[in-house]
Design a binder for these strands. Structure first.
Length: 480
DNA sequence: GTAGATACTTAGTACTGATAGT
DNA sequence: ACTATCAGTACTAAGTATCTAC
């Protein structure tokens, strides 16, 4: 709104947005009414654009670019209670764009009559294009697809660092437990924060500029108001109750029994503080990471999340996989192991809008299948009786086929029931994020090889491309 | 220590095309 | 052939981490 409009318009509820609603309705009608040929034409044009702009050559290899389309202008939403919600996101012009390529390469020319902001040749960074966005003033980048060499190697490295942590994690745990007793407040805070990061897989929690984005926190930026201490709760001693908004304003709520020493320390940290004061007032991510760097090469706070996620998957797979079960049951076990990690990392999603309905549909299918099974069993009984009376080859064959039918229906029923369990347990849990970013893919590849599960059951095409390095590398006895 | 800039990973959601079911 | 549903993808915001200059 202009400032005059802003003075005039005080309540959006009194505005009439029908014209806009009509416009979008018409757009969607038009899309629905498209003929097959129209759709094909659009598809072909998209493919052409992908071929022309979607690839680059890096180190003599043709690589797919992740986000080659520039972000269009629009109204900024942001997530959670964002102070900049509704601001206009400007259109990006050639004059905003920095191109990064090798000196001898032929890079895209700006549209006629325009100029790039800059063309540079920096081979120390991986981005191809950057521009500064007008909402937060941050830099945006165009980079390569996860299937690219450069991203794959980085990913591999990430998991190798996490595996290094595995080798020394017990030493570190011993160390921070000692530090709970330190004379220095700063060291105690560091040790308690690290305990949370390790035990609960919390994010590091960088400071954020107030008023620039939604009020969210991670471990180091927790405030007094985000925890509640209970000397005794639900029959457990020394319980810490967490309630705060984390990344993307996703709520973290958890009640955790902790060691007495941690509990006492927390009481100490909270003494004489207001709810809005920092819990760890002598600590930030940079202090924490500096300390971690001294304990292990390449160690930072987020490595704990990667490590704990991957080790949990490996351990859960060992625990949940039953060698005697069939393929769908094994895959349910995999999903459950994956789900344990997603819960640890607090990866949530809004329950799908159609969840209840789709659950009902599935239940109806299960009921129908049960009826079908009852019928098949009746038929089987009949066939048995027939055989007793007739004792001929034909009835013997009929009995066999009825037996098979019952088995088939039983298997179908079981598959449906497994599906229902899986879906119900997944209602508000998002598995994708941990699968893509936290779980060493070699664990999954090894598991598939060990139990003869086709890798396609676990990873779709895109995921197989991203994890090509792991599929190549891991054999069935890979240990994280 | 702090602030700002930079580069990269991690995150949830809306949309869309493919596929299963009728 | 048509529709409902679901998996996969595109999108881009929101984190982490590091470096530099004071």
């Amino acid at each position: 709104m202009t400032s005059e409009e802003r003075a005039k318009i005080t309540d959006l509820k009194k505005c009439n947005f029908n014209e806009m609603a009509e416009y979008f309705k018409a757009q969607s009608e038009a899309r629905k009414a498209m003929t097959k040929e129209d759709k094909l034409k659009i598809k072909a044009e998209n493919e052409r654009l992908l071929q022309e702009y979607g690839f680059c050559i890096m180190d003599n290899h043709k690589e797919r670019i992740a986000n080659f389309r520039i972000e269009p202008p629009g109204l900024f939403r942001g997530r959670g209670d964002h102070p900049k919600m509704g601001m206009l996101k400007r259109r990006i012009r050639p004059e905003d764009i920095i191109i990064n390529c090798s000196k001898d390469s032929k890079h895209p020319k700006p549209p006629p009559g325009t100029k790039w902001k800059e063309v540079r040749h920096d081979n120390k960074v991986t981005w191809l294009v950057s521009w500064t966005e007008n909402i937060q003033g941050s830099i945006k980048y165009i980079m390569l697809n996860p299937s690219s060499r450069i991203k794959g190697e980085k990913d591999w490295q990430k998991y190798e660092t996490a595996r290094n942590l595995k080798k020394c994690v017990e030493r570190l745990r011993h160390q921070y437990r000692e530090d709970w007793k330190s004379k220095e407040m700063k060291i105690r805070q560091r040790a308690v924060a690290l305990y949370f990061i390790d035990k609960l897989a919390l994010r590091a929690g960088n400071e954020k500029e107030e008023g620039e984005s939604a009020d969210t926190v991670g471990c180091c930026s927790l405030r007094v108001e985000h925890i509640n201490l209970h000397a005794e709760k639900d029959g457990q001693e020394f319980v810490v109750e967490f309630d705060f908004l984390g990344k993307d304003s996703i709520r973290y709520y958890n009640k955790v029994p902790v060691e007495k020493r941690v509990f006492k320390n927390l009481q100490l940290f909270m003494e004489n503080k207001q709810p809005e004061d920092d819990l760890f007032d002598r600590l930030n991510t940079s202090i924490l990471n500096k300390h971690l760097q001294e304990l292990m090469d390449g160690l930072t706070a987020k490595v704990f999340r990667t490590y704990n996620a991957s080790i949990t998957l490996q351990q859960q797979l060992k625990e949940l996989t039953n060698p005697d079960e069939n393929l769908p049951a094994k895959i349910l076990s995999y999903n459950r192991a994956n789900r344990a990690v997603a819960i640890l990392c607090n990866h949530q999603r809004a329950a799908p809008k159609t969840f209840e309905k789709s659950m009902q549909n599935l239940q109806a299918k299960i009921d129908a299948k049960k009826d079908q099974l009852a019928e098949a069993k009746r038929d089987l009984k009949g066939a048995k009786a027939d055989l007793k009376v007739r004792r001929d080859e034909k009835s013997k064959k009929a009995l066999e086929s009825k037996k098979k039918a019952v088995e088939r229906v039983e298997e179908q029923l079981m598959k449906l029931e497994v599906q229902a369990t899986d879906r119900e347990e997944n209602k508000q849990i998002a598995l994708g994020t941990s699968k893509l970013n936290y779980l060493d893919p070699r664990i999954s590849v090894a598991w598939c090889k060990k139990w003869g599960i086709p890798i396609e059951k676990i990873y779709n095409k895109t995921q197989r491309e991203k994890f090509a390095w792991a599929i190549d590398m891991a054999d069935e006895d890979f240990e994280f």
